[in-house]
Design a protein around this nucleic acid. Structure first.
Lengths: 193, 193, 193, 193
DNA sequence: AATTAATCGAGACGGTACGTCGGGTCTTTAC
DNA sequence: GTAAAGACCCGACGTACCGTCTCGATTAATT
């Protein structure tokens, strides 16, 4: 049982949610770079120390604030048809990365991960994009050994495209999904490795 | 022709290269986040105004300092075999992103691009990874309409993997290249692999 | 009779003395400026609220903690000889201000009184140095009208010297006491003014 | 010759005077305790770093801002009459400590000196009250060996009175001056020490 | 040769966020 | 009702970097 902290004033849930909402809002309003710990505290109507007490960096807060939404937006129920499911997933991923607030948060976090090893670890240990791709593919029967390669093959192209061009229009979702599924079929019929 | 500024003291090439080298060094020594315009100037033994006179941000300097090296490291001479060339390319890309200083610069820039639209434009208009993939694929006869999708399909998976997991070991380069080429063959010759 | 607070848990004498001792200790260890309400509570092993419940400021605590000691150290039994008594008093005052922990507390409080009107009132209404000087002089028969001037004349010079120079060595106690007593004799023998 | 700092932008005299004036103003408006380095910088319209670049503490600034005025207010031209000069000096000192802005600064500094050794040294090495008293007494022929005791005897009583009671009304200036001068005569007629 | 003009290193300038610390208050459980 | 614990909001701390602004000193091309 959780024996920690029976004494003293308990943590304020109100302060916690105020901070998370402030981060969500500020990301859209001013962007990740202009979002500061000071600004977050002021926007949330919370003391600066309270923010630092529970989170080390704005990246941590943003991660906590966005991961639930991100998982929901990327969840795909597996049908029997891998090509169709892949198309749905790629489409959702493109929407997520290009349009969704949670996706903007994810992109900001992956960006920060390239500068800060602590954030890199945060992203690596619970990468919502990779996890959702793996979940979908696992439902289609891929084995653990195949999952990593397949997830990268599925999520990588749209991820690469949007992170480097920021333009979701130049991307043909169906084409990418077909390309993935074609190989996917071959892969699963067993003639290699 | 460049008619600007014929009078006055000419720009110091020494100062320029000192700044570019300082940025290269500092990226490896302290990382992108801890690299500052002030620190760059001091490391280069150059006045701060001199840095600001020629570059707006550390991202611009880093881009100028790394793009030449990046292009060289990613150039692949096309053989007749797409699968082999793809494997070479993926392998070089993984090395580039995971090991090379120029690749570290590229990752830092792509990361910053997620936070700063100006850097996003810089990266989008001359993305060394996408450009080199397109160049290789164009040599194999892909049409302009196919290039974007194919380049993303080729470069995306390793790009995604390294940017989100930072661990190049979990990646099977051959498998990814085969997966790409299989679809490529189907696409172009019609039968499959 | 004191009718307040008959119900509920009574005030803890242990907590009170722990706080007073903590203040005494901290004044010597870290000095008045670095002494904080938080630090006092922690040193005393007492809750912060408990400190604030009984005292408003560290100055109040310090006053309560030091005034008894200060009165004892400055008490002088009057002999018949004013010059001798003055010399003893000045000597004790110099020791008190320059060496004694209670004197350090007194100096800190007088110092704080120059910044904070509340502390100024605290010091003014029960100034141990002035009170002890007046008590001695009253025992020598000075009238109420003379006491203030005489007390200032007696205590002022060493007080001034130590508060502004911090160096008790430059001071000739006998000379100051004689200077005081000479005027005192003239004054009381009636031949002038 | 002053060889320091030939390169770089020179110090802004405007910023310096703005800070000194801000400190003067704030001392009267909010008092020493509520005066902060942050507040000084903002009031002066100056960056905080600029304040810290030239002064370590608010006490240092206040000292620089008030010492000139203090010296002028306490300067007494010596006449032949020691008693008269002493009376003038005591009167000015009471005015200075009790009414003058420069005197308020001096009291604040002496107060802070009881908490902070660095300020104590600042005050001790150039104590305007002691210095002016010594200057007056030196003009009356006192020798170096006598100056310290005499200055303390002259300035100490009003200093003590005002610092501990804050009430200049309870003080009889003439009486204190006479008391000083009486002893002064005796002293100089040579019968002791 | 003297002048002009843009560059150079240096460093102070007004700002603002950093992460920490203390202030004084509030909210728990325990006594 | 007091006590210990500890979270709460607030704001100052001293530092670092931002991008700008003087400085004196160089370094060419133009007089």
């Amino acid at each position: 049982m959780d024996q920690a902290a029976k004494v003293g004033r308990p943590r304020s849930e109100q302060a916690r949610t105020a901070v998370l909402h402030a981060v969500d809002d500020l990301l859209l309003e001013v962007g990740y770079a202009a979002m500061t710990m000071k600004g977050i505290a002021e926007r949330a109507g919370v003391g600066r120390q309270t923010v630092y007490r529970w989170w080390s960096t704005k990246a941590e807060i943003l991660f906590e604030a966005s991961v639930i939404d991100a998982e929901q937006e990327l969840a795909v129920d597996a049908s029997g048809d891998l090509a169709a499911d892949a198309a749905v997933f790629v489409d959702r991923l493109v929407q997520f990365l290009g349009q969704s607030p949670a996706g903007a948060a994810y992109r900001a976090l992956v960006g920060e991960a390239q500068h800060d090893p602590a954030v890199a670890e945060l992203v690596a240990t619970r990468d919502v994009v990779c996890d959702s791709a793996r979940e979908l593919l696992a439902a289609h029967g891929l084995t653990a050994g195949e999952l990593d390669q397949a997830a990268a093959a599925l999520a990588g192209p749209p991820f690469f495209w949007i992170l480097t061009s920021q333009d979701p229009k130049g991307l043909d979702v169906t084409s990418l999904a077909d390309r993935f599924a074609a190989r996917g079929h071959v892969r699963r019929s067993g003639n290699r490795r």
